[in-house]
Design a protein around this nucleic acid. Structure first.
Lengths: 222, 222
DNA sequence: CTCTGTGAACCACTTCACAGCA
DNA sequence: TGCTGTGAAGTGGTTCACAGAG
């Protein structure tokens, strides 16, 4: 291991594209560490992620000089630093809004727990669902207890899995309790104040981009 | 309505960013049409989607001159054309690989049916699940029937919702049956041949980008 | 006068290429 | 020699600004 890891607070604003790749690098490093690999070059990481080696070096260099010239990066060392950079060195507390099919699926999604996210509860307005639990044990609470749960469990992130008609109303409630980061699965555009980070995953848009591809490429089934 | 809609096959390759925005525009137009709005300007669409008006005009102009100077775009007319461009004028046949929590959630996701996607079946290797149905009636079949189902139902799109350890093996099987478009929810990098379009949605990466935001902005809960 | 369609300017991200350290 | 870190070049996407149609 290098003597002095020199982590650095990045001077400029880091692009979302870069931070998304940091997650990919971390995924690779975890796999490599599990296989007992000690060091990896930028080219090694790049190939694994289908990226350019210079891009990998640039991404990492924003945060410090983690590499050793002539050698590469120490897997354990870099892994630890990426976790810190991504805020994964502590458990992020997550609440899921909406206890429908998607809410339950997300509550039990193994990837979340593996990366250090702690799903505290699902919230719903349907009294019949309140008190039930997902397979992995996440409990459904009533939406009216939102504020209390956010305060009690120090919720960091809200995951919006409600029908799109209810989305704006629910997100407004969540923001009012002080949550500043929201992952949204509802369709359509949501309005949030500037201090709140909203990340939307639109499943229909993703499918439609595949549909476009098929339509353009002269779909033989078409 | 304009006399002659002049749809156009785009000369250059269209960026994925553009096609994703076409889906957003379509979503807006559907809402507007439902409200009885007849025409909309590029600025109107742009505001609705938090975009720039020139960008909207550029995106649309790739595919033809749909607008009328001094007026804007006719909602019904543009909606119809966007659907054609995105391949939504016919029902895309979808099969879901993996009948876990996520598979069931996707099978019942109302957005898919609304946009013209037809979820034919879920496939799984777990004999105990075979024959069961989702709430909306999508049936679970055995993975060994994959080839037969793809042929019988003219499957266009495969949705991969299996644990990430099984993902590469399953996607290889699906591609072997001739499916050319796949929406992937498994973590990690998958290899596909060049004629296949793979779109990956990585939920962990999305959450981690929020985690990064909180870590950088001096999380008060941190 | 309004609003589209589009060349030109601008900006951001990626890749190249190489100096410099182990 | 091998590989990082980084300025410079290249690429692609967005915004500006305006000519021109209705």
């Amino acid at each position: 291991m290098p003597d002095t890891p020199r982590p650095r607070q990045p001077a400029e604003q880091i692009s979302e594209l870069t931070t998304a790749r940091l997650s990919l690098y971390l995924r690779c490093l975890e796999a490599m560490d599990a296989e007992g690999i000690r060091t990896v070059s930028s080219l090694g990481l790049a190939d694994h992620c289908n990226l350019n080696a210079a891009l990998v070096r640039k991404d990492l260099a924003y945060f410090g000089e983690f590499g050793v010239r002539g050698v590469g990066y120490f897997v354990k060392h870099l892994k630890r630093h990426l976790k810190m950079i991504l805020g994964l060195d502590r458990h992020q507390q997550v609440v899921i809004l909406g206890a429908g099919n998607l809410g339950f699926a997300l509550a039990d999604y193994p990837g979340f727990r593996a990366e250090g996210f702690n799903v505290v509860a699902m919230l719903d307005t349907d009294e019949a669902k309140v008190g039930t639990r997902s397979k992995s044990g996440v409990v459904v609470c009533h939406m009216r207890d939102l504020e209390q749960i956010v305060a009690r469990d120090h919720i960091d992130i809200g995951v919006l899995a409600v029908p799109h008609g209810a989305a704006q109303a629910v997100i407004d409630q969540v923001i009012a309790t002080g949550v500043r980061a929201i992952l949204n699965f509802a369709r359509g555009t949501l309005r949030v104040p500037p201090h709140v980070k909203l990340k939307s995953v639109d499943l229909s848009v993703s499918l439609e981009s595949l549909s476009y591809f098929l339509a353009q490429s002269g779909d033989p089934n078409g």
